[in-house]
Computed example of a mutant assay.
Amino acid sequence: MSRRFAQVDVFASEPISGNPVAVVVDADGITDEQMAAFARWTNLSETTFVLPATDPAADYRLRIWTPGGELPFAGHPTLGSASAWLQAGGTAAGEHIVQECGIGLVRIRRDGARLAFAAPPLTRTGPVEDATRAEVIAAIGLHGEQVLDAEWVVNGPQWMALRLDSAQRVLDVRPDFAALGDREVGLVGAYPDGPDTPAFEVRAFAPGVGVNEDPVTGSLNAGLAVWLRRAGLAPDSYVAAQGSALRRAGRIHVLDDGADIWIGGLSATVIAGTVEL
């Protein structure tokens, strides 16, 4: 069956510099087995399928797959799929686009030329246990004094976040993916203040779901923003960079408006057409 399809570059700062997501816009009737097989075939960090909503408060339902399995939520697929849905003629029923997915309802708004989603609540927080922290630090080739904090920032994906002593330290990490195993690990380090410098450098590793390193990661940046804002470690508005180690130039725009933390970025359709599924 022929279905509308888009491949969208998300969180890009220039053409083809962000994280691509494959979006099947007309996904009604596709089986789980077909979704999993197509996600393995695209071999992107995520492939999504847009379906009719089952919750009357939602505009559409989204299923999100990596090459290794299904996710309850992911950030760059949320923005890229919303962009593809809008381009296909979707219209929000209310003030915000409302996406139904595995973690529930996610609100998405226009932020100038960007789309932004409201960071979902964290379902697990607090310091990472000492033994786990030590194992992960060893797996990414660092010493304990180079890691300032290690926190759980779980919002669907099971992110463990390590705050390093500098942005350059984040860029220098060369992880042992076999040693990381099925852990989902995010790194964040601050840049020195500068007028044209991002506030933070971020990296994300998830070998257990088939993504050794993700170019730009909305869910991780959302979890980091919630943690860093609560801890007083980030301003209410900032830009994070991600993807530098993979020769990408992703930019994530974070805004805490006092009610919600919004995670935004540019989305641009690079490939549009149909797919036979």
Rank of each mutant, 00 (worst) to 15 (best):
G194V: 04
R248D: 07
A222I: 00
H253D: 11
N221F: 08
R203C: 13
G189M: 12
G223Y: 00
R248C: 08
V188M: 14
A199T: 12
V188C: 13
A249L: 13
N212M: 05
G189Y: 13
T217E: 04
R203G: 13
Y238N: 05
A240D: 14
T197L: 09
A199V: 04
V239C: 10
L246N: 03
V188S: 05
T197N: 01
R230E: 15
W227S: 04
L246V: 07
R247Y: 07
P195S: 09
V239T: 15
A245G: 12
G223A: 03
D214F: 10
A240H: 13
A231Y: 07
L233C: 05
G208H: 01
D214G: 00
D236W: 07
R247F: 11
G243D: 09
P215W: 04
G243C: 09
N212R: 12
P207T: 03
D196K: 02
A190I: 08
S219H: 13
A206V: 03
D193T: 14
L224D: 03
R229M: 03
R203K: 14
T217P: 01
L224A: 02
V226D: 01
A231K: 07
T217W: 03
Y191P: 09
T197P: 02
A245P: 01
R248L: 06
G208M: 01
L228M: 15
F200P: 05
N221K: 13
A240R: 04
R230S: 15
F205P: 00
S244V: 14
G223H: 01
S219V: 13
Y191K: 11
L224Q: 02
G243N: 09
G208F: 03
A206H: 04
R247S: 10
N221V: 10
G189E: 11
T197Y: 06
G232P: 02
L228Q: 07
E213S: 08
F200T: 12
A199C: 11
P207R: 05
Y238C: 08
R203P: 13
L224C: 11
N221H: 14
A225R: 00
P235K: 11
F200K: 05
W227K: 04
G232Q: 05
A222Y: 00
V216C: 12
